[in-house]
Design a protein around this nucleic acid. Structure first.
Lengths: 231, 231
DNA sequence: GCATTTATGACAGCATTTGTCATGATTTTA
DNA sequence: TAAAATCATGACAAATGCTGTCATAAATGC
């Protein structure tokens, strides 16, 4: 299997095994990578972790409704485009889905070719704005190549070192990182410099991330290290 | 008529007068602003001029095909999301449209409610990516608030002054700007400093915009000034 | 061919970044 | 409760990047 420029990284949430396998086969034939989850909960966890181009999900899921999954995905700040597949093809079903944050809605039965075309269109619209890797965690966005940071869609001006620190925290979002790690990975020091360089810079970053926003950005774990908060 | 937070600024391209009037009435009832053009050519001119949230167009137009209109809109760098309406509702028609750059495709007959819901979804997706003003011209993008520049989706690292110059060129894309203008608007000098500061910085910007890319970025008009080229 | 205009390399002064240090503030421990 | 340990912050100096100036090479137009 060759992955070409047009191929997508897809998260597929579907409890019906036969339907999932069929969709996956069709998509993988075109060189796309598909990650499959059977429950809405598993889909929610995965959506926040992988760098997916689109999320393709079934409306009827065993644990909670596909629409509820979309609402939760959006509420934690995940902005990946969502295509919903549903046996509920009436107009009011579509409107409900689209108004809930779904980006496209396709009623079963559908043609695989049209599904692929719509996924590509969704991705194209999204990708035209995704110039490079973007790390999203809660209110925060880190545009890696552009070296820019955002909180709640507002740009935050950071110095180069501050950006490096922010990026590291985003890469380890929700995880406590200690000073030794930061010295090694951000400052490229395999020794203790016997200064408080980490503390000083963390303070600088913290002030910039919090200014003009409600709530803390970075939590200090006394005696351990620091942790980025979703915000 | 009250315009609320959800209302859209819509460009509608449709030659059938009755159909256009019906669509417009439905949309204006919801507080949207609709600008109507009868031909593809008029639509193309208008698309480049107004700040439209979405473009809603019919596939069959008198002068040239709706798909051709989409291709032309995209080729001059206009990225406004496009919803196409068509009596041609077969799957291959949809695929053709979506692959040509259309963002959503709705076959006639359709329900007005679903049309509105889909337009809002298109706009929502587009707007959520616009952290701030983005200027697009050919291969170039200028993200004003993030102060970042891109050519062919690749980030270009610019110094603050270089970015200011780039932004000015983007704001006057395709137009020849002379040194007096640049001194006044970028350097805030209402006098001739008797140096070649503009020339030197233009050279710096030019080298950065062109490095690793095919073709020139900035054209010198001897004796007049400079002009950004679409790339 | 010459005058004018534009492009480019180099440099110095200024602005920003970053690490260090001292000390105040907070937390933990005995 | 006091002392020790840890973290936060203001200030400063050195390092680095930015930007305008200048001289000169290269290109254009008459």
């Amino acid at each position: 299997m060759v992955q070409n420029d047009q191929s997508l990284n897809i998260l597929h949430v579907e409890d019906d095994e036969a339907a999932a396998v069929a969709v996956m086969a069709a998509m993988q034939r075109e060189g796309n990578i598909v990650c499959w989850e059977k429950t809405a909960e598993a889909g929610l966890q995965k959506a926040g972790r992988g760098a997916f181009d689109v999320i393709l999900l079934d409306r009827m899921l065993p644990d909670f409704d596909g629409l509820e999954l979309v609402r939760r995905i959006r509420s934690v700040g995940i902005d990946t485009p969502v295509m919903m597949l549903s046996a509920l093809g009436r107009s009011e079903n579509r409107i409900e889905g689209l108004d809930a944050g779904v980006d496209d809605y396709l009623a079963k039965p559908y043609e695989t070719g049209e599904l692929m075309s719509r996924l590509r269109a969704l991705h194209r619209r999204s990708a035209s704005r995704v110039h490079s890797a973007i790390i999203i965690y809660g209110q925060f966005e880190c545009h890696v190549k552009a070296r820019t940071a955002f909180r709640q869609n507002r740009h935050i001006a950071l110095s180069p070192k501050e950006f490096e620190l922010f990026k590291y925290l985003m890469e380890n979002a929700g995880i406590v990182v200690n000073r030794d790690q930061l010295l090694r990975d951000v400052w490229n020091m395999d020794f203790d410099p016997q200064t408080n360089v980490v503390d000083v810079n963390m303070g600088r970053l913290r002030r910039k991330l919090e200014q003009g926003h409600n709530g803390p950005a970075i939590e200090t774990i006394w005696g351990s290290g620091y942790r980025l908060i979703a915000g």
